[in-house]
């Protein structure tokens, strides 16, 4: 099958701090993939590399066969873990920005999502609460019909009720023939929507496996396995 995202012994360091070490993995179309790891394990770096925001020190990254760049950015929708809209923007202007720059922006879908997320176009984006800002971020990312969605901690800072709502939105609005990578350290809440998980620790890949296979073979939840794997190292 054609590979949507491919990492080939990718390494990245910031000064002396190693962020990623020899990561090799691939993600195929039509999957929801959990990227699991504690804070500072390299999840964000991995996503930012795939989104074309950073340049790897070594190794190759390919998105639909392209090296990260203009073509890959058009195919990837990245939701960063901090606001991507600018301070002066209203919710509407933040969406207009997406519409102006991405050909795959879907206006109908964005309206449906605004409604679902209970956001108003006129609200000033920077004045929204943290939870509402996360909803806006997700709306911005999922309003596009991208091939690959990269969502960095979409449920990080919100309470459990809001969390459920965001997960609902994710299942409801993602495109079935595209893939979604969701990074999180809150596994129990979200593991039921994953096809497979990738676990990383201190910049190294621990495992990549189908979640149903994990449950079937070990009789454990992904959350349990994650805790065990992390404790071992």
């Amino acid at each position: 099958m054609a590979r949507l995202l491919e990492f080939e012994s990718v390494s990245k360091a910031y000064g002396k701090k190693i962020a990623l070490q020899q990561i090799t993995m691939a993600i195929e179309p039509g999957r929801i993939v959990g990227l699991l790891g504690s804070n500072g394990s390299g999840k964000s770096t991995l996503m930012r590399l795939a989104a074309g925001l950073e340049h790897p020190d070594a190794g190759k990254i390919r998105i639909l066969g392209h090296l990260p760049g203009q073509a890959s950015k058009a195919a990837v929708s990245f939701m960063p873990d901090r606001p991507q809209f600018e301070k002066w923007m209203t919710v509407g202007e933040a969406l207009d920005f997406q519409r102006d720059f991405f050909n795959d922006f879907d206006a109908t879908k964005s309206e449906r999502m605004l409604d679902f997320m209970k956001l108003s176009r006129r609200d000033k984006a920077s004045a929204l609460s943290k939870g509402m800002q996360e909803r806006l971020q997700l709306t911005l990312a999922l309003s596009r019909r991208a091939s690959l969605y990269l969502l960095d901690e979409p449920i990080g800072g919100v309470d459990p009720v809001a969390r459920d709502h965001i997960l609902d939105a994710l299942v409801e609005f993602y495109e079935e023939d595209s893939s979604v990578v969701v990074s999180t350290h809150l596994i129990a809440d979200i593991e039921r929507i994953f096809d497979e998980v990738i676990m990383i620790r201190e910049g190294s890949l621990l495992l990549q496996r189908e979640v149903e296979q994990i449950r079937m073979e070990s009789g454990k939840s992904v959350d349990q396995l994650f805790k065990e794997v992390y404790a071992e190292c």
Partner: peptide, 11 residues
């Protein structure tokens, strides 16, 4: 420096 701008598919 801005994430929003740098994600845009432009050289």
């Amino acid at each position: 420096r801005s994430v929003g701008r740098r994600l845009v598919p432009l050289g």
